[in-house]
Amino acid sequence: MSSEWPLWEVFIRGQHGLNHRHVGSLHAPDAEMAIRHARDVYTRRNEGVSIWVVKSGDIAASSPSEKGPLFDPSNDKVYRHPTFYDIPDEVGHM
């Protein structure tokens, strides 16, 4: 039965002000049922205040074979990390 249902990716926002985070996937016949299932499968321990679902097939993903050209060039560019100046204590957490 589950093989006839499309796969959905589930995103949960844990608290107000935080981003939705990918938590997993599930099968459901449509978006409404996917949200119900997500509620039952992924928010049982008070994890969420908001749920997004998206059909897995609708996600455009980078291909693992392109990993080199996509990500390697940033490996040796340490100057892109904001680590070369001091942050005053008063600024607090950034």
């Binding site: 039965m1 589950s2 249902w5 599930l26 099968h27 459901a28 119900r36 299932h37 039952d40 499968v41 049982r44």
Partner: peptide, 9 residues
Amino acid sequence: APVLEEDIA
């Protein structure tokens, strides 16, 4: 249950 999602529900 027929599917995992319904089992948990």
